[in-house]
């Protein structure tokens, strides 16, 4: 039976009295790719932030390996969970290699850090050629690859990706999603992806959640979610909830 690695259970998040999430339960199981979709302002990124202690949870809880866990930003990485934030957020005045070293901060064995940097270069050869360059000089696609590679430095069991296609050309988006799929297959890393680019995401996802106005509207097998017209209605703003 598949183990649940990380989940939110009935989580609500409020910003200044406004509900950003309302009773949201999202589960990431061992080795799966989970898609988290929805229109702008649906609360997708807030789900990830609540798992990392970056959003104020008003009610509900976060579970790690089935146990309640109070998320604190600098702690959850020790629990084998890694976060690749929206907009890449690489350290532009540090080199590619220094960014990777920062990603491996909690790994105390320095030779292991070197091995993982070498593995990152194998996975993302473009980065190797620019290892000594400031990451601010990289293209958007290369910065996204660096952000993912940095997130993999701790060899996490769970990787949370927030809008990895944001601002990237379609060709680069395809490359990024191919790499995400490869990481999942080769390393068995469970991946939660927040994304609005459904065309690229759904073919590689195992399960999907669709959010609208801070609530989960649909969840289930990614292909089944993709097959109906409900996604189109949600994104077009014509979906009317029945409850």
């Amino acid at each position: 039976m598949q183990k649940n690695l990380l989940e939110t259970q009935h989580v609500s998040v409020q910003y200044g009295g406004v509900n950003a999430l309302d009773d949201v339960s999202v589960v990431i199981g061992e080795g799966e790719i989970v898609a988290l979709m929805g229109p702008n302002g649906a609360g997708k990124s807030t789900v990830i932030k609540s798992m990392f202690g970056l959003a104020p949870i008003a009610s509900g809880e976060v579970l790690l390996h089935g146990e309640p866990y109070v998320p604190i930003p600098h702690n959850i990485v020790h629990k084998s969970v890694s976060y690749v934030p929206q907009g890449r957020r690489v350290f532009t005045h540090l080199s590619v290699e220094e960014n990777l070293e920062i990603g491996g901060y909690i790994v105390k064995d320095k030779s292991l850090v070197k091995d993982r940097i070498a593995a990152a270069y194998d996975l993302f050869p473009d980065l190797k050629a620019k290892r000594d360059k400031y990451s601010g000089t990289l293209s958007g696609g290369q910065q996204q690859m660096l952000a993912i590679a940095r997130g993999l430095m701790t060899d996490p069991k769970v990787l949370l990706l927030d809008e990895p296609s944001l601002g990237l050309a379609p060709k680069i988006v395809k490359e990024v999603f191919e790499l995400v799929s490869k990481i999942n297959e080769e390393r068995h890393t469970a991946i939660l992806i927040v994304e609005h680019n459904l065309q690229s995401l759904l073919p590689i996802a195992h399960r999907a959640y669709v959010l609208d106005h801070g609530k989960v509207i649909i969840e289930g097998d990614a292909q089944k979610v993709a097959s109906g017209d409900i996604l189109e209605r949600i994104f077009m703003g014509t979906y009317k909830p029945t409850h």
């Binding site: 220094e98 070293e101 901060y105």
Partner: peptide, 22 residues
Amino acid sequence: SFGRTLKGIREDETALQVFGYK
């Protein structure tokens, strides 16, 4: 590496925290 961390704080303190930096 201490200096590198200082630059990281300057650029994006939250991004640094998610890698385990206090």
